[in-house]
Design a protein around this nucleic acid. Structure first.
Lengths: 160, 160
DNA sequence: GCAGTTGGGACAGCCATGTTGACCTGTTTT
DNA sequence: AAAACAGGTCAACATGGCTGTCCCAACTGC
């Protein structure tokens, strides 16, 4: 009866709440850590997400980026326009399908992305390090479990 | 020289990017999983955060909640007003300091929070389960490392 | 080769949620 | 009694989501 693992739904409430909270605060602090730098460039988080994923996958099409970020054409269009006007991003027509606009960062864009990434890296590296090597795999595994199958492939493909 | 762990900053870029991406997508999917339910009540994510933390710590003061959420009095005030008008939350003056308005959920509020929590629990329990028991500790440990010392205490205190 | 679909851009307007600054009311502290 | 504090409120603004509509150019299939 009183076997600890016998009533997972009930007993795990504390573990679940802990996970929800740590995920919320961890995510918040990581993202906030670059807000000042972004604001100094006149950019917001939405700009950073575009910058980040284009850095990660140069030549990505607008449609693919929309699917990845799960936002609308309109929302993404705004930030892409801003980034292009600031000389941080540029587009080239696709070779196979010339309707596509393949996105890539300019040198300035890549430099900014690298600078922002540094802050993320420092924070996350410190967290990896304080948690210990073994923890990182668990961290990844749980987060992967939160991502629906279909999307998980898209995400893994980023590390292509 | 060529010891694998000898150049952490350089070698870990891939691991860091993986962490950034999984954290982003994992957090996104978890939060999106309750958006429909919230929207059906005419509420947004900001309302849920207030609901969640008041459920977690009944009798929390407005000031403490502001500190926890790291938003302004104005922003929080809007959602608290909405929640009170909908009969989901109520306030009582503090006994020791009668300037304080201590927050708690009404029965209806608690019921709604429980319903929303169920969805979070299902998603996160599935992730815990697919990742394996051992992974959960690593998941927590890395996230804790992302939270600044001062705040970490506030967060741990939630499980009081 | 023409029709329909698709990739992308752009306009207009709405909503949620964050921000600041100023000011008011009570209550507590000194 | 004065100052500090908890909280509420008003006004105004920014960001970044959303919808709907319309357009163009390029690709695809009959």
């Amino acid at each position: 009866m009183a076997v600890p693992t016998a009533s997972p739904l009930f007993l795990r409430e504390a573990e679940i709440r802990r996970g929800v909270e740590l995920l919320y605060f961890g995510y918040s602090h990581l993202t906030r850590s670059i807000d000042d730098n972004l604001a100094a460039q006149g950019l917001g988080r939405a700009h950073h997400r575009a910058l980040y994923f284009v850095a990660r996958q140069p030549g990505i099409s607008v449609g693919e980026l929309i699917a990845l970020l799960a936002i609308t054409k309109q929302s993404l269009g705004r930030v892409l326009t801003d980034l292009a006007e600031r000389g941080l991003m540029e587009t080239r027509p696709g070779q196979e399908d010339r309707r596509q606009r393949l996105l890539r960062l300019t040198e300035a864009g890549a430099a900014l992305e690298a600078e922002l990434f540094e802050a993320l890296r420092d924070k996350l590296a410190a967290a990896y390090s304080s948690a210990g090597q073994g923890a990182v795999g668990g961290f990844w595994a749980v987060l992967e479990g939160l991502i629906p199958e279909a999307e998980r492939q898209r995400v893994s493909a980023l590390g292509k």
